[in-house]
Write a protein that binds this DNA or RNA. Structure first.
Lengths: 188, 188
DNA sequence: ATTATCCGTGTACGATCGTACGCATGACTG
DNA sequence: CAGTCATGCGTACGATCGTACACGGATAAT
């Protein structure tokens, strides 16, 4: 306790991160229903004992994993919104984000729904979704008034769901038109 | 095989229905992740053996339960939409449906999300959500043009999610304004 | 070099899971 | 009324689950 401070003593400081990442992989593939310590441990290539060592239990693991995920998603959205200059560009960016083929992968969609489902039932997870939504809304408010931002947020959510559930590819025209109508408000 | 035809021989013809209803209760309370034969059997007050007797396995039980649920939800929505006469009334009805305090209970929200989550990952369940969405869209098309119906459908979905996740009660004004903007299209 | 420390892991335990299957039992046939 | 049969249930089994916990071995201290 004299020199390097409270640094971790042993190797592998990123073990915890690998477990979290693997947990998200397992969630994406098998759902929260099919996520177990053993499966995550296998996916992360760590021994089973590491699970209880790094996380107090399943709840903490899930909360940590979904926390990481929602923060990453919010950060990505913020960045995309920060890189545009005016409303028209923002609208185009939104269309790109929602429409198929862009960065939003099915994996992300699945994880997002898993989180929403958890949040719908357990208030503890609602903190995560609320924080995520708040950041998205703030990002939107760089270019739209608060009321419009709220509406856009809801619309994006709904269109994203449809993209996740529709077997046919999303119709870019509809997305564009819907965003146009929403942003046609008084100060949108 | 002479008289009443292939009627069930023993008592309790509605046992299957009770199991399905109980299954939805369990899903609402513990999620698909926490749904097991034993729990459903206990909730339906039937012996464990009835599970494998009436359903080939967990998959069939879930598919049956979610099928019942989505059909009921679609039917309810259709009815509400069929009872209105013009577009303005339809818009008011949509606001009532989305905004808090109306018939959409948290239970229904939770089950809906569980279904969406399953559908996002497994295409087999997407048939259910697709059928549901198709019926909703058709119901909306009684009063709105197809493109607007699609947009409204997405918007409703998104607003419903926000209602499920927001801790604060839904703002009726925003809902009304959003629907107004969407329906301000050329033939909306 | 020796000792003390504690990180990280292997393993084991009790609970719960889905599912199969033999059998009691009530319903039809004659 | 007796015989036949399928329905519906009790029970048991193997797998898998979350979690606890004792211990080996690397590291820091002297």
């Amino acid at each position: 306790m004299t020199d390097p401070g409270p640094r971790t003593r042993r190797q592998d400081p990123e073990r915890r991160e690998r477990i979290i990442a693997a947990c998200l992989d397992v969630i994406a593939e098998s759902g929260v229903a099919g996520t177990s310590h053993r499966r995550v441990a296998a996916a992360a290539d760590v021994p089973l004992g590491s699970m209880t060592y790094h996380f107090s239990g399943m709840d903490e693991l899930l909360r940590e994993a979904f926390g990481r995920f929602s923060a990453a998603m919010a950060g990505y959205f913020e960045q995309r919104m920060a890189e545009v200059r005016d409303r028209d560009q923002a609208k185009l960016e939104l269309v790109s984000l929602i429409a198929a083929g862009d960065s939003y992968s099915r994996r992300d969609l699945v994880i997002t729904h898993e989180l929403y489902t958890l949040a719908a039932r357990e208030p503890a997870f609602r903190e995560l979704t609320n924080a995520w939504m708040a950041r998205s809304r703030t990002a939107l408010e760089r270019h739209f008034d608060p009321a419009t931002a709220r509406m856009l947020d809801a619309l994006i959510e709904g269109l994203t769901i449809h993209r996740a559930l529709d077997t046919e590819p999303q119709d870019r025209t509809i997305v564009t038109a819907a965003i146009d109508r929403i942003t046609q408000g008084p100060t949108g």
